[in-house]
Computed example of a mutant assay.
Amino acid sequence: MPPVNSDGAGPSSGEDGSAAAAKKRNRPKYHRFTQQELQACKPILIPQTVILVLVFVGLIFIPIGLACIAASNKVVELVDRYDTKCVPRNMLRNKVAYIQNSSIDKTCTRVFKVPKDMKKPIYIYYQLDKFYQNHRRYVKSLNDIQLRNPKKVANTQYCSPEATANGRPIVPCGLIAWSLFNDTYSFTRGHGNETLRVNKDGISWKSERNRRFGKNVYPKNFQNGTLIGGGQLNPSKPLSEQEDLIVWMRIAALPTFRKLYGRIDMDLQAGDRVEVTMQNNYNSYSFNGKKSLVLSTAGWLGGKNAFLGRAYAIVGLACFLLALLLALLYFVFPMREEHLSLHYIPARLVR
């Protein structure tokens, strides 16, 4: 065999050494974690374990659900829809003209009879239906910097179409503030003998009063345009103290929502006659919306809502039913030991 010519073509030994060294340097350091060689738990759930787990979940969830339902049932709630009942009969076919006519008295009186004892505090809510506060253009129509910074009150960016009126900036600007709810309620017990005072202090979140709305920002040029939207604001009070506005500007996610109007710090007894004198000012008729007044107590879960309790109870019952089904299947088709093994004999290849 002839000797190999060292001067011939091909990579040199020096090049091979440098390539091997570079490859060695790029190789990650060996570790059991990077090589996935750590010990791992690979449990095989046998039917008995699954059945016990489902029964345990059912035993936990069903009592929780029943407790939530019981707490919701203890809450006393009165709901009265008044948007159509407060319209004169001769204008039921033209509700928009009724609400837009400022010469018509909008005073309306409703009477409640308390079905159960209501312990203080009694929360007053107004409920609106078919009002889409989550609409994209509506949500964007405000300026948060203007709300909290007195030096930026002229900044009306993003507030269109309610940015300026008569050539001057609106404070607070935007459609959200412009559409402020302006129905009012006053309450008496008996036949007008005892006035139930409505406390409106602290109905908003403290974080909103302290951070979102400025203590030195006052309403200016508000509702002075050609088209009046909703309620008025007190120009002598800063925005951080106008709690009706603060509550209204917390955007609702759904078209049916409730917002806190105030609270009554007195107990009401079963059978009490409560008379409500309201001003039906808010125009919900243009979009076929509904308005309701809600009086409600509160429990340890909040207001009256049985959804959470029902969800827990249904999940618990479903777990019990699945456990029963698996138990029947286990007794009818018992598992053998080879079913629990991870090692299966491969089938022979059929030629």
Rank of each mutant, 00 (worst) to 15 (best):
D129W: 11
V114I: 15
G17W: 15
L147A: 03
T226P: 10
S179C: 14
K120M: 08
C86V: 01
A163C: 02
A327L: 11
G17M: 12
L321C: 07
Y344C: 15
R310S: 11
V274R: 07
C108I: 03
A323P: 01
L349F: 07
N149Y: 04
A163F: 06
H191C: 09
H31E: 05
K215S: 15
P161S: 07
L340V: 12
M1P: 14
C41H: 08
T109Q: 06
Q279G: 14
K151G: 02
A67I: 14
T195V: 15
E15V: 15
I51A: 01
V247Y: 13
D83C: 01
N166H: 12
N210V: 01
R211T: 07
E275I: 09
I314E: 09
A19P: 09
I51P: 07
E194C: 08
K24M: 06
K95C: 03
I60F: 01
E337H: 13
Y285G: 00
G262Y: 06
N305L: 08
A347P: 03
L308A: 11
V171C: 00
I124S: 00
R25M: 09
L147R: 10
I60C: 10
A306R: 08
L295W: 11
S236G: 07
R136H: 05
A327E: 05
L78K: 09
I62F: 03
F181H: 04
I145Y: 07
L227D: 14
S207I: 13
L329Q: 13
S72N: 09
N288C: 13
K200H: 02
S186F: 12
E15P: 11
Y82H: 02
L322D: 05
M118C: 04
A253I: 03
P238F: 01
Y312A: 02
A9S: 06
K23G: 14
P3S: 15
I62L: 09
V276G: 03
K119F: 10
Q133W: 03
I69P: 07
N155H: 00
P255Q: 10
I64Q: 15
S13E: 09
D7R: 05
S6C: 05
F213M: 12
F222S: 04
T109A: 06
P11F: 07
N305R: 01
D265S: 08
F187N: 07
